[in-house]
């Protein structure tokens, strides 16, 4: 009588793979930190940009900032008075202040003034819109620091800056994705290469390419995803600290560091990255493992 085979642990095709090499997990953590920071920044910028067209609905927008003993509000009131008497301007108004106005001022060319920005909208008579340069000169003559946006797709500083920022953000995000893909693929290929003797033995036994991808399947969910999640959470924590803690905000302000007005949805944008990174790693690792096995065989 033959003894019934007792249940045994199934031997690992490729031993010691774990959930991925430490260097990959560390790299994913750092990349995730940058990626999440970028996503938070983009979410905040998109939120601000989406609000601008509704608020800045004049034919022209004027940004002014205070100087010397004059506050931004006082400067805006003075600019309003001047603009209401400028030929071609049918109506001028002070736009309700909102977070992001300082950024708009920076984009329009008030960089380095360091003061608070106030925005003004201008209605103009059809065919008689005054030249932005002329308005700037008029305000300058009155001692006001001002910048003008004509909302042209190519001539408007806000529009140009928004398009440029979107392109840079997309490019940087694409680069982060590409680096994540490359590192994951490199790690899988390297893990197989260092186990070449075992791989060749398995190939001789008839292992297919897919058999070499299978032992790596835990890397993405159990290694890359937690690393990406940690990195993204860390980034959200850093970005959200000034929002959550007035002490942190006060300390940063004392250091002269800019504090972005972030909302909870802005911070939540960081959550997009970890699943994205894990899926990308899964795909990269699968392809790299199959390709390396094929190469070794």
């Amino acid at each position: 009588m033959t003894e019934a085979p007792r249940s045994r642990r199934v031997p690992a095709l490729l031993p010691g793979l774990g959930v991925g090499p430490l260097w990959l997990l560390a790299a994913i953590f750092v990349l995730s930190l940058f990626a999440a920071m970028e996503l938070i920044g983009v979410a905040a910028a998109v939120g601000t940009l989406q609000a601008w067209p509704a608020r800045l609905n004049g034919a022209l927008t004027v940004a002014v900032t205070g100087g010397g003993l004059e506050s931004a509000d006082a400067a805006a009131a003075r600019a309003l008075e001047i603009l209401n008497h400028t030929p071609g301007v049918t109506r001028a108004w002070i736009v309700e202040p909102a977070p992001g106005d300082d950024i708009a001022g920076d984009m329009m060319g008030l960089t380095g003034t360091g003061g608070t920005t106030r925005l003004l909208g201008l209605g103009t008579a059809p065919g008689q819109t005054p030249q932005p340069g002329r308005i700037a000169a008029t305000l300058s003559q009155a001692g006001l620091k001002a910048a003008i946006d004509d909302h042209g797709l190519t001539s408007g500083p806000l529009e140009r800056a928004a398009a440029g920022a979107a392109a840079v953000a997309a490019g940087a995000f694409g680069l982060l994705l590409l680096v994540s893909w490359g590192l994951s693929a490199r790690a899988a290929a390297s893990a197989l290469t260092t186990r070449a003797e075992r791989v060749l033995l398995l190939i001789q036994f008839g292992a297919r390419d897919a058999a070499f991808a299978r032992p790596f399947r835990s890397w993405a969910p159990a290694g890359v995803f937690p690393s990406a999640l940690s990195g993204a959470a860390f980034a959200a924590g850093l970005a959200g600290a000034p929002v959550a803690s007035p002490n942190v905000a006060a300390w940063l302000a004392a250091q002269g560091l800019p504090i972005a007005a972030l909302s909870a949805p802005d911070l939540a944008a960081a959550a997009i990255w970890p699943p994205m990174a894990a899926l990308l790693a899964y795909w990269a690792i699968d392809i790299a493992a199959r390709a390396t096995a094929r190469q070794l065989s």
Binding site: T2, P5, L13, L201, F205, A207, R208
Partner: peptide
Amino acid sequence: HDNIALAALAADRAPQNYEAEVAE
């Protein structure tokens, strides 16, 4: 045992499919 099982696993065989043969 595992040396033999490894060759079966490489050929995509499940443990319930090869265990008896390994023993034999």
